Amino acid sequence: MSASEVQPPQSYRKEEVQEILHLAIARKTEVEELSRTQLWEIAAELDIDADVLQVAENDWLLQKQRQEKKDEFNQYRQGQLKRKVIRYAIINSFAMVLNFLAAGNLSWSLYILLFLGLPLTLDTFKTFQTEGEEYEQAFQQWYLKKEIKASISSVWNRIKTAWGS
């Protein structure tokens, strides 16, 4: 069936309109970016109220900012996991070498390997679980700690500059 044989419907749902307009704008522009002025012109052509566009733009900026913070949090968690894996490897390597030198085979060191492996497995699962209430709580705690540290650092810097003057 060719494109000319397809009959468009008489009405579209909101999501369908968004998808069609997204495709049309993507095909219309050769460049990857549109200026803010062009955004406002497109909105005016679509008869979108300036206040509605302003609220939508602010919501988008907040969502983008939040996603950047979540990406930073995910990198932090992965860094923490990497340190735990390195510590796990060092401890177990030492235990296995010690066990092999003492007994000539691996016996009790395997129990340490398994015993320490369970928490590491759970931490790995938690690190790559990026949805749900537990993740959101961990993110909020991390973000709060980060904000508190930034505030304390700012106050400390003000005190240092006040005393230094």
Rank of each mutant, 00 (worst) to 15 (best):
Q7D: 06
P9I: 10
R13E: 09
R13D: 01
E15P: 08
E15M: 00
I20A: 04
H22Y: 00
I25V: 15
A26R: 00
E30W: 11
E33G: 02
L39R: 04
L39K: 09
L39I: 13
L39V: 15
W40T: 01
A43Q: 08
L46P: 10
A50R: 15
A50P: 07
Q54C: 04
E57M: 09
W60F: 14
K64I: 09
K64D: 08
R66C: 05
K69W: 10
F73Q: 11
N74F: 06
N74D: 05
Q75R: 14
Q78D: 04
Q78K: 05
Q78L: 08
G79W: 07
R87K: 01
I90T: 01
I90R: 04
F94N: 02
M96A: 09
M96V: 14
L98N: 07
A103N: 05
A103F: 13
G104D: 00
S107R: 15
S109N: 07
S109K: 00
Y111S: 05
P119H: 11
P119N: 07
P119V: 14
L120N: 12
L122I: 14
L122N: 06
D123K: 08
T124S: 09
F125Y: 14
F125K: 03
T130V: 13
T130S: 12
G132D: 10
E134M: 13
Y135N: 12
E136T: 06
E136K: 15
A138W: 08
Q140M: 05
K145W: 11
E147K: 13
A150H: 11
S151F: 05
S154E: 05
N157F: 07
A162K: 01
A162E: 01
W163E: 01
G164T: 13
S165I: 06
